[in-house]
């Protein structure tokens, strides 16, 4: 697969940009958190594209964001349970 670049994304509409980024991100996140991969990917796609592109180049950055997302997701799930 060719690496995603900012110019490739800029050529596509926003919806496609997020889809392209998601398709690339999902397998990377699935390797770290198989059960939460879909939700984590969805959370990360809300981040700015330039930051997402940086994450492909920096595994440390990706891992850090993923762990952050997991923490937020878990807190969100606890909150949902307690409000029910």
């Amino acid at each position: 697969q060719e690496p995603l670049t900012a110019s490739m994304l800029a050529a596509a509409p926003l919806k496609e940009q997020k889809q392209l980024l998601g398709e690339r991100l999902y397998p990377l996140i699935q390797a770290l958190h198989p059960t939460l991969a879909g939700k984590i990917t969805g959370m990360l796609l809300e981040i700015d594209n330039s930051e997402l592109l940086h994450m492909f180049e920096s595994p440390e950055s990706l891992h850090s964001k993923v762990e952050e997302a997991v923490a937020v997701l878990q807190a969100h799930q606890v909150k949902e349970l307690t409000t029910k």
Binding site: L14, K15, K18, Q19, G22, E23, L25, Y26, P27, G38, K39, I40, T41, G42, M43, L45, E46, L73, H76, K79, E80, T83
Partner: peptide
């Protein structure tokens, strides 16, 4: 930010159009 939302986060599934676009301000 205004409480819990059962539809958040918008889950991404490979091959399926992501539904989270409405949360993003272009």
């Amino acid at each position: 930010s205004n409480g819990t939302n059962v539809n958040w986060p918008p889950e991404f599934c490979p091959g399926v159009p992501w539904k989270g676009l409405q949360n993003i301000d272009p």
